[in-house]
Nucleic acid binder design. Structure first.
Lengths: 109, 109
DNA sequence: ATTATATATAAGTGAATGCTTATATAAGGA
DNA sequence: TCCTTATATAAGCATTCACTTATATATAAT
C-alpha cells in the first residue's frame, strides 16, 4: 500500500466517533438516524463523519426511500482489515427505527 | 482493546511524517539526526513527532552519549502489529552518521 | 570552566478539524 | 401541490495540529 493511502485511511479512522460508527456497522447496515442516537452529536456532524469514511473507501451507502443505509465495503484494504478486527462491534445501534426494516436489512445474520 | 487506546494509537500514526518515521525504524534503531535528513523538516519538529509516537506506546528510546536512538517497542498491540505490517521499510535512513555505530546498532540483522 | 554538539521544550502562527446552527435537497404522504 | 421527514451541504467558530524560531538541557571535548 502507498503511504499516502495508508495516511488517508488512518486519518479517517483516527477519531473516537468514527471508530464508534465502524463499531456499529460491524453488525451490518445502519441508517443515519440511528448513528445520531448512538453518538449523541447532531445529524450534520454524523453526515460529515460518514462522508470522511466514505471518501477513504471504508464504507458505502444505499438509499432506501428517504433513508440512507451505510455499511462497511466488502473489499477492505489489508490495513483496514487489521484495524476493523480490533474494533469491537456495537450492538445497541442495531436499527431500532422503522427505516431499517423497510428495505431488507433482515437477511444480515 | 479499548476504543480510547485504539484512537490514541491511530491518531499517533495518522500522519505522513510519522508513518515515515516508523518506516525508518522497521530496520532497527535510528537516531534523531537521521530522521531530520529523511523528512526534511526541522529537528524540533522531528522531536515532537517522536514524542507523540512514544506517548502512544509505539516506540521507545535509548540514550547513547549525546545522541538518542529510537526504535519500535517489542510488544506492540494487535492493532499496531497489523498497521506496521502495511508500512514498507525505508532503508535510506539507516544511520549514515557516526552516532549509530557507537552504541552497537550493528547486531540488528 | 568554557565551548560545541545533540536533543527537548517553549512560544507563536497558519491550516485543518469537529462541532454547531441554518439552509438546501430529495423523497413520501396528505 | 404542499407539507413532513431524512439526509447533505454551507457557514461560522473554537480547538487541535504541525510547523517554525528561539531557548533550555545534557553530554562530551578542550
Amino acid at each position: 500500500m502507498e503511504n499516502t493511502l495508508i495516511e488517508k485511511q488512518l486519518k479517517a479512522v483516527a477519531d473516537l466517533n468514527r471508530i464508534k460508527l465502524l463499531a456499529c456497522m460491524k453488525n451490518g447496515e445502519v441508517c443515519v438516524c440511528d448513528f445520531v442516537d448512538v453518538l449523541g452529536i447532531s445529524q450534520p456532524a454524523v453526515s460529515q463523519h460518514l462522508k470522511k469514511l466514505k471518501e477513504a473507501g471504508i464504507i458505502t451507502e444505499r438509499k432506501v426511500g428517504t433513508w440512507k443505509h451505510y455499511r462497511l465495503v466488502e473489499e477492505q484494504t489489508p490495513l483496514m482489515k487489521g484495524i476493523l478486527q480490533q474494533i469491537q462491534p456495537l450492538t445497541k445501534c442495531n436499527c431500532v427505527t422503522d427505516c431499517c426494516h423497510v428495505g431488507g436489512n433482515e437477511d444480515e445474520e
